[in-house]
């Protein structure tokens, strides 16, 4: 599987994502600077975590207007798989590729800890290797992860099965509505999630739970 990672000024989880992708796909991802005009032909484009543009204006807002986003939107429309993690999730919502918005954590604190995620559906290209209802460990590290969407949007993403991961009962770290941790677009080829699956993929990380996301994408490619 061919992959690419987009790098913005202020991205800081790009190397973690690189290592995870290389480990799981067996080939080196391409790194794409945000100022480029086009993405290479790949099966998966990842928008990694970090603090692009120092979170100025709103988290992900400036990065979402970067030159490369035009091609990302067009590739997403053509059905290419896109994964946004943490700041990547914020960027994808700001770019209009995903519904809703990510606001300041309800408790106002930056949260850096491990949470439990529940896999809401296994019928997606991002979750095929999970069991429906499976609860798994995943680290989070963010200040603006509080998922918000208006009532109508919330109902439609729930009804359409676009909510892929929820914080398991009692572990919602940020006040997200409906405990939403990861959400897809209507077409099902773009996923954004606040937790960092790339940080739980080898024994030294203390677990391998995060691998299942990448293995799901690999199996579906």
């Amino acid at each position: 599987m061919k992959t690419a990672v987009i790098i913005f000024p202020g991205s800081n989880r790009d190397r973690d994502m690189f290592a995870a992708l290389e480990l799981i796909t067996g080939s080196r991802p391409q790194s794409i600077w945000h100022g480029e005009a086009t993405l290479p032909d790949v099966d998966l484009v990842v928008v990694p975590g970090g603090f692009s543009y120092g979170d100025y204006l709103r988290s992900g807002a400036i990065a979402a207007r970067s030159p490369i986003l035009k091609d990302l939107v067009s590739k997403a429309e053509k059905g290419v798989t896109v994964l946004g993690v943490c700041n990547g999730f914020q960027i994808l919502t700001e770019a209009g590729l995903l519904p809703g918005a990510l606001m300041r954590n309800a408790g106002l604190n930056f949260v850096c800890k491990e949470v439990l995620l529940e896999t809401v559906t296994d019928a997606t290209r991002f979750s095929g290797k999970f069991q429906k209802g499976q609860v798994w460990r995943c680290p989070v590290a963010h200040h603006d992860g509080n998922y918000f969407a208006d009532a109508e949007t919330l109902k439609s993403i729930e009804d359409n099965g676009q909510v892929v991961f929820r914080y398991a009962d009692g572990t919602n770290p940020n006040g997200s509505l409906n405990n939403i941790a990861g959400v897809m677009n209507a077409k099902g080829n773009v996923l954004g999630m606040m937790p960092h699956p790339e940080n739980l993929v080898e024994p030294l990380h203390g677990g391998l739970d995060g691998r299942l996301i990448f293995e799901s994408i690999l199996a579906a490619a």
Binding site: L57, R58, A61, R65, T93, E94, G100, A101, M103, F148, A149, D150
Partner: peptide
Amino acid sequence: EKLLANTVI
């Protein structure tokens, strides 16, 4: 519409 506000919120 394009940048200064996020009209979702």
